[in-house]
Design a protein around this nucleic acid. Structure first.
Length: 780
DNA sequence: ATAGGGTTAG
C-alpha cells in the first residue's frame, strides 16, 4: 500500500485489480492522493465512471478545482447512462454557470438524459444552445436532438431535424425510427423502415429491437414474421436481445407457439428473456404455463427472478385467484430479501385484492414505503370488485390526503364505486374531473361514465355521453344496451342492438347476455329464442352458462315452466344453483307449487350455496297458505347454517349517503321516519293497500305483518328521502336485494300520495314509480 | 429486450 503511494504512477494499475470488496482500500489510496495532482484525480474519476461507480467518481470529481471539458462530459455521460438522469442535467447547468463551454460530445449525453426524463423544456433550451454554438451540423448532436424530440413526443420537430441532416448514418435512422415506434405510430414506423432501406442502409439489430414492440402492439403478425425472417437472414435472430424482442412480439400477437419456438432457439437465455416468455404466457392467459416456466427458470436453471419476473408471475396468481401460490411468493421475496420495488408491491396488492383478501392488500399498502398512484388505484378497484364501494371512496380520501394524485386508471376504479352506490353527486364530480383532466378522450372512461349515470338513474345522460363519444368500442355498446335493459327500456335496448349490428362492430358474448335478458324481461320469447340459436350459428359466439340461464329465465318468466325445466336438463353444462334459481323464481310468480318443490329439491342437492332460494320456496308455500311447509323450509335453512343476507337500502342526500338495514332504528332521525311511515300507512290503507300475506312468516296477525313490512329497508330510505329533500326532487333509493312484492305495491301508493317520483334500484333493475304506477309493469 | 392499477354481463 505505502509503496503504491510513494510511486503514484503505479497507482492506476493497482486500481484495476480492485473490486467491490476492496473499495475501502481504494478509498484509502485516493484519500492519500487527493492532495497530489489533478491529473491523477482526473484519471481516477474517469476510472470510477467507466466502472459505473458513479458515487465514487462524483466524490473525486467534486474535489477537482477546474475539471476539463472531457471530464465534465465523462460525468454527464455516466449519469445519462445509468441515472440518476436529473444529475446529468444538473451537471450540465453547473458547467454553464462556471463558464465552461460544452463540446459537441457534451450534447448527446445531456440530451439522452432529457430523453429518459421526457424533459422537453430542458431539451429545447439545449437545442438553442446548440444553435448558438453552431453545432447543429454535427451528426452526433443532431441525432441526439432527433432522439430527444422523438422520445419526448414532438415527432414533428424530430422529423424536421432529421430531414435537414445532410448525412444520415444508421444511428440517425434508428433514432427517428425508434421515436415513431416508441409512440406506437405503426404505419409511419414501417414507412421509415422502408425508406431507410431505399437509402441504402440495412437495419441492424438495434433497428429491429426498437420496432418490434410497435409491431406487437399493432398486432401486425405478418410484419412481425417478415422482420423475423430478415433477422434470420442477417444472422442476428439468435442474439438474446433480438430473440427477446421477437418472442415478446409474437406473444403480443397471441402467437404463443412461435414465441416458444424463438425462446427455445436462444442458447444463452438471461433473466430478461425468461421474464419476457413468462410475461408472454400471462399476456395470452396461459397462467399454468407461466407458473411452470417460472419454476423451470428458478428451480431447474437456478436463475433469480427479477422484479419484472415477479410482477408477471404475481399477475398469473391473481388471475388464477391462487392465494396460496401468491402468498408463498410473497414469503419467498421476504425470505430471500428481494428488494420489493413499488411495481412488485403493487402487483402484490393487486393479487391480494383479486383473491378477495382486502385486509392483506390494505395491510401491505400500509407497510409500503413508497406508495404511488398505482398502489392506491389497486386498492380502490379491489374494494369495488369485492363489493365494498364505500371503502373504495374512503381509501380515495386517504389517497388525496397523502398528496398522491389520481390518473385515469384511478378514475376507472372510482366511477364504478359511484355506480354501485348510486352516488350521483360523487359520480358527477368524477365526470367533471375527467373532463378537466382530459380523461374523456379515453373510451374506457366514457364507458364507465355511461354506466355511472345509468346506475344513478340518469339514463338520458348516459345516452348523451354515448352519442358524443368519438370512438365507441364493444363495451360502450354493451354498457348502453344493458343500461336500457335495467331501466326497462327494452325497445331502446333492442333497437340499439340492431344499430350495433349495422355499425359493423361485432357483438360479443356480453352483448348477447344483454339482448337475451332484454327479451326475457319484456316477454319476447320468440325473439330471445331466435338470438340464442343465431349467436352460435351466425355470430360465432359460443353460449356460456350465463346465456343458458338467460334462456331459462326467458322461458320460465313467460310461464313456460315445463319447457324451461327440460331446457335445463338438456344444457351442455351441469346446471348450477343459478340455473335452477331462475326457474324457482318463476315458480313463485306463476304459483306452481309442484314444480317449485321439484326444483327446490334439485337446489338442495347442489349444496350450501344459495340462501335466497330457501326464502323463495318458503314464500311459495306461504303464498298458498301452506304455513307448515314454509316453516319447515326455513328450519332446514337455519339447521344447515344458511344466513339470509340482510336487506339494505341507501339514499344520497346532498352528497351524503345514508344507509339503512331492515328494521333499522339507529338513524338520528328515526323517530320522524317512523312517524312518516305510520302516517303514510294510514293514507295507503284508505286507498286500498293491504299487506301481502305471502311475504311474512306464517300465522301472525295482519296488523303485525303490516308493521314488519313497514320497516323494510327501502321504505325507511324512502321516508327519509321524503323528509329530507324538496318535493320537486325525485327520490332515488338503492337496495342490495330484489324488492319484495309488498314493498313494490306499497311504493306505488306512496308515489301516488306524495306526488313524487320515486325510483328504486334493486339487485336486478330500476323501478320507476310515478302516480301509482311502476314502469316495470309488475313484471320483473 | 421483459413488468404494476382499468370499463360492460353473470
Amino acid at each position: 500500500m505505502r509503496r503504491c503511494i510513494r510511486n503514484p504512477k503505479n497507482q492506476l494499475s493497482s486500481f484495476h485489480t480492485l473490486n467491490h470488496h476492496h473499495q475501502l482500500q481504494g478509498n484509502i489510496i485516493h484519500q492519500h492522493v487527493t492532495h497530489n495532482n489533478t491529473h491523477i484525480l482526473h484519471n481516477l474519476a474517469r476510472l470510477y465512471a467507466a466502472r459505473n461507480q458513479i458515487e465514487l467518481a462524483r466524490h473525486v470529481f467534486d474535489q477537482i478545482p477546474e475539471p476539463s471539458v472531457v471530464l465534465w462530459n465523462t460525468m454527464i455521460r455516466a449519469y445519462a447512462w445509468s441515472g440518476p438522469f436529473q444529475e446529468a442535467i444538473h451537471l450540465y447547468h453547473r458547467m454553464l454557470q462556471l463558464g465552461v463551454t460544452p463540446s459537441n460530445f457534451t450534447f448527446p449525453f445531456v440530451l439522452k438524459a432529457c430523453s429518459a426524463l421526457q424533459a422537453i423544456q430542458v431539451g429545447i433550451q439545449i437545442h438553442d444552445h446548440v444553435l448558438t454554438l453552431g453545432l447543429q451540423a454535427d451528426v452526433y448532436v443532431s441525432t441526439a436532438l432527433v432522439d430527444m424530440y422523438a422520445k419526448c413526443g414532438n415527432l414533428f420537430e424530430a422529423q424536421t431535424i432529421f430531414d435537414s441532416m445532410l448525412h444520415r448514418d444508421i444511428v440517425a435512422w434508428n433514432a427517428i425510427i425508434s421515436g415513431f415506434s416508441f409512440h406506437v405510430l405503426f404505419n409511419q414506423t414501417m414507412h421509415l423502415l422502408a425508406q431507410m432501406q431505399l437509402a441504402g442502409i440495412s437495419p441492424n439489430s438495434s433497428t429491429i429491437v426498437s420496432v418490434l414492440p410497435a409491431v406487437g402492439q399493432a398486432n401486425a403478425l405478418c410484419r412481425g414474421k417478415a422482420i423475423h425472417a430478415y433477422s434470420v437472414r442477417k444472422i442476428f435472430s439468435h442474439d438474446v436481445v433480438v430473440a427477446t424482442g421477437l418472442l415478446d412480439m409474437y406473444s403480443k400477437c397471441h402467437h404463443l407457439s412461435y414465441a416458444t419456438k424463438v425462446f427455445n432457439t436462444v442458447n444463452q437465455k438471461n433473466e430478461i428473456c425468461w421474464s419476457a416468455m413468462i410475461g408472454g404466457y400471462v399476456f395470452c392467459d396461459s397462467m399454468r404455463d407461466a407458473l411452470a416456466l417460472y419454476d423451470d427458470m428458478v428451480l431447474m436453471h437456478c436463475l433469480s427472478p427479477t422484479p419484472v419476473t415477479l410482477a408477471s408471475i404475481l399477475r398469473a396468481c391473481a388471475k388464477l385467484t391462487d392465494l396460496n401460490k401468491g402468498k408463498s411468493l410473497h414469503c419467498y421475496m421476504i425470505k430471500s430479501s428481494i428488494n420489493l420495488d413499488t411495481t412488485v408491491g403493487n402487483s402484490l396488492i393487486s393479487m391480494y385484492a383479486k383473491c378477495g383478501v382486502m385486509n392483506d392488500a390494505v395491510g401491505f399498502l400500509n407497510e409500503m414505503i413508497t406508495k404511488d398512484t398505482v398502489s392506491y388505484s389497486a386498492i380502490i378497484s379491489g374494494f369495488v370488485q369485492n363489493g365494498h364501494a364505500e371503502k373504495a371512496l374512503l381509501i380515495f380520501c386517504q389517497m388525496q390526503l397523502s398528496g398522491i394524485d389520481l390518473d385515469s386508471a384511478t378514475m376507472i376504479g372510482l366511477l364504478p364505486a359511484c355506480s354501485h352506490l348510486a352516488a350521483l353527486q360523487y359520480g358527477a364530480c368524477c365526470h367533471g374531473q375527467s373532463i378537466v383532466r382530459g380523461f374523456t378522450a379515453d373510451t374506457s372512461i366514457c364507458n364507465a361514465i355511461i354506466d355511472m349515470y345509468a346506475k344513478c338513474g340518469k339514463i338520458h345522460f348516459s345516452r348523451q355521453i354515448f352519442d358524443r363519444m368519438h370512438k365507441r368500442d364493444i363495451v360502450s355498446w354493451n354498457t348502453m344496451i344493458i343500461s336500457y335493459g335495467i331501466h326497462g327500456l327494452y325497445i331502446e335496448a333492442l333497437s340499439l342492438f340492431h344499430e350495433l349490428r349495422a355499425s359493423g362492430l361485432k357483438p360479443d358474448d356480453v352483448t348477447l347476455i344483454a339482448v337475451l335478458s332484454a327479451c326475457s324481461h319484456s316477454g319476447l320469447v320468440a325473439e330471445g329464442k331466435y338470438w340464442f340459436s343465431s349467436m352460435s350459428q351466425d355470430l360465432n359466439i359460443s353460449p356460456r352458462m350465463a346465456h343458458y340461464i338467460c334462456m331459462v329465465d326467458l322461458l320460465a318468466r313467460a310461464g313456460n315452466l315445463d319447457e324451461a325445466y327440460s331446457f335445463i336438463q338438456r344444457m351442455p353444462f351441469q346446471p348450477d344453483v343459478c340455473a335452477w334459481g331462475a326457474l324457482l323464481a318463476a315458480c313463485k310468480t306463476h304459483r306452481n307449487i309442484e314444480m317449485g318443490e321439484r326444483v327446490s329439491k334439485k337446489i338442495q342437492l347442489l349444496g350450501p350455496e344459495s340462501t335466497g332460494n330457501f326464502v323463495l320456496m318458503s314464500n311459495i308455500y306461504s303464498s298458498v297458505g301452506r304455513w307448515d311447509d314454509a316453516a319447515h323450509i326455513r328450519s332446514i335453512q337455519r339447521h344447515q347454517g344458511y344466513k339470509k343476507s340482510p336487506g339494505c337500502s341507501w339514499i344520497e342526500i346532498s352528497g351524503v349517503i345514508h344507509g339503512f338495514i331492515g328494521g333499522d332504528q339507529s338513524h338520528p332521525q328515526s323517530a320522524s321516519i317512523n312517524n312518516k311511515l305510520q302516517e303514510l300507512l294510514v293514507q295507503m290503507k284508505n286507498l286500498g293497500y293491504q299487506a301481502d300475506s305471502s311475504l311474512v312468516l306464517h300465522d301472525v296477525e295482519q296488523e303485525e305483518k303490516e308493521q314488519i313490512l313497514l320497516y323494510h329497508s327501502e321504505r325507511i330510505a324512502i321516508a327519509f328521502g321524503i323528509l329530507n329533500s324538496s318535493p320537486s326532487n325525485p327520490i332515488l333509493v338503492t337496495k342490495n336485494l330484489r324488492i319484495c312484492v309488498d314493498c313494490h305495491s306499497a311504493i306505488k301508493f306512496m308515489s301516488l300520495i306524495t306526488k313524487r317520483e320515486i325510483t328504486v334500484r334493486d339487485a336486478s333493475r330500476f323501478h320507476h314509480f310515478e302516480n301509482g304506477i311502476c314502469n316495470c309493469g309488475d313484471f320483473w
